[in-house]
Amino acid sequence: MYNLVRFLLRFWLLILFLSLEGFCFYLIYQNSKFHQVFLYNKANEISGNVYLQYAASKGYLSLGRVNDSLARENAFLREKAMESFIYLKNEEHTITDSTATKLQLFTYKDAKVIRNSVNQSANYIYIDKGASMGIKEQMGVISAKGIVGQVVKVTEHYSAVMSILNRNFRVSAKLKKSNFFGQLFWSGKRIDEVRLEEIPKHVNVHVGDTIVTSGYSVLFPENIMIGRVRKVYAQPEKNFLEIDVQLSADMNSLSHVYVVNHLQKQELEILDSAVINQAKK
């Protein structure tokens, strides 16, 4: 009888263990798309607050470095300002008013990084601007040195950005020199390296060539810096090159980023759905 009780007792512990593990894997499964974690909105506002305090106190320690990078960023923005516009030419009229000839395509909102991770296979960055500041999902995020990621979830005061160092992140990128474009994603081995694929084999690619955004998506403007070619692999059994790209942005020490807002996004989406409808007929 005693042995039976002891056996049941051990069995009970195993059942408790398995059911708790089951609970954990249920959480992981729920969480695997990451979006669901934000169902716990309140919870994230709390941890967001803790991280905000922490980032504020840490910010003081790196003021010198931040100043330097802000000065460089200003120069960068001045340079970029022209590229934020497209010029509307109308042959029938000669327009003298210079403001009427251009249409703003992109606006930028600055934000501060309050939490950053690079050690997981799916890394996310939290920033201190949310829906109340006009941040929406599917907006691109850049830093002064290059692209950073894409907003995937927004709460009232915070946003979660899928980092470029995330196995789910894909972006269209091109060689600045020859304009050939391909898919860019993280290979997971180093935090300063991403992989560019789908570049045809006949294209001449050299170590040190600049890789920039293609501008084909509404996430990023054209010609935003991504990085430089570090190594080129040409495998005989494949038709495309595999290129290791050294990221220009230091993902490890991000502090200020810019959220890119594409102003003509809706118009492009209308066009998109019209084309898809056309194709269906």
Binding site: L13, L16, F17, L20, E21, C24, F25, Y26, L27, I28, Y29, Q30, N31, F34, V37, A43, S47, V50, S117, Q120, Y124
Partner: peptide, 28 residues
């Protein structure tokens, strides 16, 4: 031990945004 380990693991998960993963490992 199991309950306390799970609590510790889930608390870490809560801050690191990896809900359930540290919980499962710590529970083991």
């Amino acid at each position: 031990l199991m309950v306390l380990s799970l609590m510790m693991g889930l608390s870490v998960d809560f801050f690191l945004g990896s809900l359930g993963m540290h919980g499962a490992a710590a529970l083991l």
